[in-house]
Design a binder for these strands. Structure first.
Length: 257
DNA sequence: ATGCCTAGTGATACTAGA
């Protein structure tokens, strides 16, 4: 089974690219982030035509997450728990074939310092609490999405330029480490321990052509899924397509149980 | 230190992204 995560950066603006990629790679499940569309503007017709059912949590202008699946899917949560005043659409969760799949779009947090950065750290704390609850259930779990955290120096083309960026601030990395300390495995890194891997290249300065990227889209696996892990890869070529997102799709393949 | 680019909103320059 192939499971992917893709920050599309506008699900309607990128619909041709999304459909082209779905047709090309036929993932079983896809976590989408940055829909940038309200609930009623989700392109369900085209998604269904491509062979998927979908659940989504939209929002006007910004954010928005969705899960697409070729198999039966049961929604288990929409919205990150822990703060009733937080109305951002940044988390949706479902069970597919016995696997709990959490799809997240973690706040960017820039500029640092400031209220957006504080919001990011609070969100990470709430997410870590929720992840712990899932971990304690001892069920197979995949946490996939745009984490907006560069875990280590080798995950950014020029780390010295990013020290005061919310994606690479020590506080952000420490919060990510705290989450990982629960026992999750970073799928891409565990399959490619010594490689430079990026999942994002900004639109400025010809970043993709220069491979000036960041690794910020992650797959965190529970032990039961790790045992079944066959592959973890980035569809880097998709970033080179016309009218493409600034993120590339990331995917894992796991053995059937 | 900043813009470089791109999408969304709504009809203008703006916010937001990372």
């Amino acid at each position: 089974m192939k499971i992917a995560t893709y920050n599309v950066n506008g699900v309607n603006g990128r619909l041709p690219v999304l459909l082209r990629w779905l047709k090309e790679t036929s993932p079983d499940v896809v976590c989408l982030q940055e829909l940038k569309a309200p609930e009623e503007r989700f392109p369900l017709g085209a998604i269904v035509k491509a062979g998927y059912q979908a659940i989504w949590h939209g929002q006007k202008s910004w954010n928005g997450v969705a899960i697409l699946s070729r198999h039966a899917m049961k929604e288990t949560r929409r919205g990150l728990p822990g703060d009733p005043e937080d109305l951002h659409s940044r988390y949706i969760e479902a069970v597919v074939k016995g696997i709990t799949i959490g799809c997240l779009y973690l706040p960017n947090g820039n500029p640092y310092p400031g209220p957006k950065f504080e919001y990011k750290l609070k969100w990470m704390k709430r997410f870590t609490t929720h992840a712990k609850k899932l971990w304690n259930k001892k069920v197979p779990v995949i946490l996939a999405g745009d984490f907006n955290v560069i875990p280590a120096e080798r995950d950014v083309y020029k780390p010295e330029r990013w020290v005061n960026d919310a994606l690479f601030r020590v506080e952000s990395r420490a919060a990510f480490s705290k989450l990982m300390a629960q026992g999750w495995t970073d799928a891409l890194r565990t399959r490619h321990p010594d490689e430079i891997i990026y999942t994002f290249w900004d639109y400025f300065r010809n970043a993709y052509a220069r491979n000036a990227g960041l690794r910020i889209d992650h797959f965190l696996l529970s032990p039961g899924i790790l045992k079944r892990l066959k592959k973890a890869e980035v569809d880097m070529h998709v970033r080179g397509w016309e009218k493409t997102s600034d993120h590339a799709p990331v995917w894992i393949e796991i053995r059937d149980r």
